[in-house]
């Protein structure tokens, strides 16, 4: 790009990459290789010295395991529902926040607030809100006459999964809002004015002016959020610990259990790799999409 620099100076630029490469190799590459090595062995922490090489048997075990596919299904459900709703809410709220009315700055801050709340605190609040005996949700719905007696919201496996999703949406929509606001501020007002003069209505303006301009931002938010949702862990850990009846046991949580509860290090490592492969596939698809669409 900048031919003005002399050759030896360009060499210097290679040195700039070194710190990043060193920490990456140290903290990620080495553990990844180690994880791969462990995944090819039968390795229980209870018998650390008996560690036979078993090839890809740990991987085959999961591919035939019903529990594994159930976790994958739950994860995909969690991912698609939470990301879809976050994007829809994120875009709508961002559009509302772009309106030029008084007090919008304060509202913006208030709406972005949940994002700053630590995940474990977020989990603790919602766990209490959902509580069957003294939770705010029961109290509120009862008082409004919507339910006639208190319900144990987290007792049914599928309901519990949906309620964890609600808590997650509350926590992460602000992130999407920020990305969308960033993109919206680059849209020149004149574009809207032109569309207005052409007689386009609000809905029409959204689909023919706003949405196309937002596409790069939507893709960025989509990539980051999908990947995060696919490996969701913290919020499950705090609210339900995978329960009830494994109803919220997503794939990253299953990997955690294999390693830290059942102490099956070999299986846990194999599961880590399977998760990563899923994510890589998603990521590659997205990056392809990004590179095709973003360059405008």
């Amino acid at each position: 790009m900048w031919k003005v620099f002399r050759k030896e100076e360009v060499k210097f630029a290679y040195w700039l990459l070194i710190p990043t490469l060193v920490v990456l190799i140290l903290i990620i590459a080495y553990p990844i290789v180690d994880t791969f090595y462990l995944s090819l062995h039968r390795y229980y922490l209870t018998r650390p010295h008996f560690r036979p090489f078993i090839g890809f048997k740990n991987y085959l075990y999961f591919l035939q395991d019903e529990e594994f596919w159930a976790s994958i299904k739950r994860t995909l459900y969690f991912m698609s529902v939470s990301v879809a709703l976050e994007l829809v809410f994120g875009i709508l709220i961002a559009l509302l926040l772009m309106q030029k009315v008084k007090g919008m700055g304060l509202l913006k801050t208030l709406i972005i607030l949940p994002w700053a709340v630590p995940t474990i605190v977020n989990g603790a609040i919602w766990k209490w809100i959902y509580n069957a005996d003294y939770g705010a949700l029961n109290g509120l719905l009862y008082r409004l006459g919507i339910i006639s007696k208190y319900k144990a919201w987290l007792a049914d496996p599928f309901t519990a999964l949906n309620f964890v999703i609600i808590a997650d949406i509350w926590h992460t929509t602000p992130f999407v809002i920020i990305v969308m606001l960033a993109a919206l501020t680059t849209v020149p007002d004149s574009l809207y004015e032109a569309a207005k003069i052409d007689g386009a209505g609000a809905v029409r303006r959204f689909f023919s002016v706003t949405l196309p301009l937002l596409t790069p931002a939507i893709l960025v938010a989509l990539v980051i959020r999908t990947v995060e949702a696919f490996r969701v862990f913290d919020i499950i850990y705090v609210i339900t610990r995978g329960g009830p009846a494994n109803g919220t046991q997503v794939i990253a949580y299953q990997a955690y259990l294999e390693t830290f509860s059942y102490l099956h290090l070999g299986k846990g490592s194999a599961l880590s790799f399977i998760i990563s492969i899923f994510i890589m596939v998603l990521a590659v698809i997205y990056i392809k999409l990004l590179y095709n669409k973003v360059e405008y």
Binding site: A252, Y256, F260, A283
Partner: peptide, 14 residues
Amino acid sequence: ILLGFFPAATMIFP
């Protein structure tokens, strides 16, 4: 970017 996608929960043990 791909390395960044490796799930943190599964990196804990190594």
